[in-house]
């Protein structure tokens, strides 16, 4: 079976997915009891894994997507043992946007609906290499921006149609202002943040909550070996804030909260000073 055929079946299957709410009513999800059906894209990222543990402990239903089968298998086993009510996985390289529709349709079928989609895919890339070599810059933009946009387009329309769901998107404080140390990564996250702002503006009125998450530096595998990484936020603390934020009606959330203040200051610095700084 080739992938075009599968995409075909996925598209035709879509209208048969459960319609849980009357289209015109906005529902307060917080009042809803029972396990949440959560799709996690980029489930082996440090922040996603720590967040999934908290969901698993609550008994939520998880569909986990990642590129590496070995890593995904141990993460899925961990979630099962911790108490997730249901765990399914798919090994997919999300850089290939042609597979997205098929994957997402399969995921919502597997979960029998969708309450939360956590878009957590991302690469830090090699900042120095991306300054010199467009191939590296392209790789960063592809994963962090293009792939995320493709996923969110499908998910946004799916949720808007059903007037239900929360899209939680992992962006970064690095997207708030370009800095010489990682502006390619920063611009991929800036593009993502702006896209998500617009998507929220469009589908919030349809009863879909769209959340932009902007973590400061966090101690994970991604930031290993970075300067002063022992001062970074603990991933467990960040995960706890994320689970809270995803349960609330927030639009943009900085974790830890101090980064809201820091980034206000950073964005206020006049350009004629900023361009001389080593940030």
């Amino acid at each position: 079976m080739n992938s075009a055929q599968r995409t075909q079946t996925a598209t035709t299957a879509e209208p048969q997915l459960p319609l849980r709410y009357a289209p015109t009513i906005a529902v307060d999800d917080a009042a809803e009891a029972g396990p949440q059906r959560i799709l996690v894209l980029g489930a082996t990222s440090g922040i996603a894994e720590a967040t999934c543990r908290l969901w698993a402990e609550r008994g939520d239903h998880l569909f986990l997507v990642a590129r590496n089968a070995d890593k995904l298998n141990v993460v899925a086993a961990d979630m099962r043992v911790r108490g997730a009510g249901y765990v399914d996985t798919a090994v997919v390289d999300l850089d290939d946007t042609t597979k997205h529709a098929e994957l997402l349709a399969h995921a919502v079928n597997s979960l029998a609906g969708l309450d939360v989609a956590f878009v957590a895919l991302g690469v830090l890339g090699d900042a120095r290499e991306s300054e010199l070599n467009f191939a590296e810059a392209n790789r960063i933009l592809q994963t962090n921006f293009v792939s995320a946009v493709s996923l969110l387009t499908w998910l946004g329309n799916f949720c808007a149609q059903r007037h239900h769901g929360t899209l939680a998107v992992l962006s970064s404080v690095a997207g708030d202002r370009g800095r010489k140390s990682n502006y390619v990564y920063g611009s991929s996250k800036a593009g993502l943040s702006t896209f998500v702002d617009g998507l929220r503006n469009r589908i919030d009125r349809e009863g879909v909550r769209v959340l932009t998450i902007k973590p400061g530096p966090v101690k994970t595998a991604m930031t290993e070996g970075m300067r002063s990484s022992d001062k970074f936020a603990d991933v467990e603390t960040v995960a706890t804030s994320l689970v809270k934020a995803i349960g609330k009606r927030a639009g943009v959330v900085y974790v830890p909260g101090k980064w809201w203040i820091i980034m206000r200051v950073v964005t206020l610095i006049p350009e004629f000073i900023f361009k001389k700084l080593d940030l």
Partner: peptide
């Protein structure tokens, strides 16, 4: 310490498998 996942648990026997 980053390799800290639970892999299996038997609630009847108390046999735990973990990284």
């Amino acid at each position: 310490i980053g390799m800290n996942r639970l892999l299996d648990f038997n609630a009847e026997t108390g046999l735990l498998t973990a990284e």
